[in-house]
């Protein structure tokens, strides 16, 4: 019995190419609202970063380095903690993985199962900011007041340590009254996710026919 439970919670599928997330975890396969996702590392040991994420020296401002601690009270996560979050709160319907970048970046590829909530939509200048808070699980009390006791746990990421979009999203949520212990910062963002060869998703509509994994030449 216990063995079965462990197998479903910790799926260890041996990839033919042999790459794994950790010694104990081959890859992560999960279903969210009827949609199946897989997170694995590329089996190609020669794979390299290309295009946008091969750049090292984007100019600050605006591409300035972000601190490890985004806000006091907000936990910073690495990749394995993000995966734990997916297996835990996200799969149990208590959390959301938030890609805080603008849609054109999200369309190019994101962490599988992430939801695009651009950082600009969380600012009070957005007329729909409060609608988004409700979608995040805040209970409206009338006017601009909310009860956040059932609000979702959020992991927020952007392009990584050279982008301030996650931090802006976190600050905006803090200003809106979102409880800080429900907020988590994946500082590595897409830069580190791709650098580690982890699966990137694209909406089906924009996915080219050819496979996207591995190096092109």
């Amino acid at each position: 019995m216990v063995g079965i439970v462990v197998l479903t919670l910790v799926p260890i599928s041996v990839l033919a190419e042999g790459n794994r997330l950790t010694e104990l975890l081959g890859d992560l396969q999960f279903t969210l609202n009827g949609q199946a996702f897989t997170i694995a590392r590329s089996p190609d040991p020669e794979a390299r970063l290309s295009d946008d994420f091969a750049k090292t020296s984007r100019i600050c401002p605006p591409f300035c380095l972000q601190p490890m601690q985004a806000l006091p009270g907000v936990t910073t996560l690495g990749e394995m903690e993000v995966i734990d979050f997916i297996r835990g709160p996200l799969s149990e319907g208590r959390g959301a993985l938030i890609d805080a970048r603008l849609p054109e970046w999200f369309e190019k590829g994101s962490i599988p199962s992430a939801v695009n909530v651009p950082f600009t939509t969380l600012a009070p200048e957005n007329p729909f900011r409060n609608d988004i808070l409700v979608a995040l699980g805040a209970r409206p009390l009338g006017g601009g007041a909310f009860d956040f006791s059932n609000a979702l746990d959020l992991v927020i990421f952007c392009n990584g340590a050279w982008s301030d979009q996650s931090v802006r999203a976190l600050r905006a949520l803090q200003a809106a009254g979102y409880p800080l212990d429900r907020l988590h910062y994946y500082r590595g963002g897409m830069q580190d996710w791709l650098m580690l060869g982890l699966t990137s998703s694209r909406p089906a509509s924009s996915r080219p026919a050819a496979a996207t994994q591995g190096s092109d030449g």
């Binding site: 939801v115 651009p118 729909f128 979608a135 979702l152």
Partner: peptide, 15 residues
């Protein structure tokens, strides 16, 4: 803003 917000809300509701 409306397009991005509607998309975000629909995706969050979909979760």
């Amino acid at each position: 803003l409306q397009r991005m917000s509607s998309g975000a809300i629909a995706a969050l509701n979909g979760l």
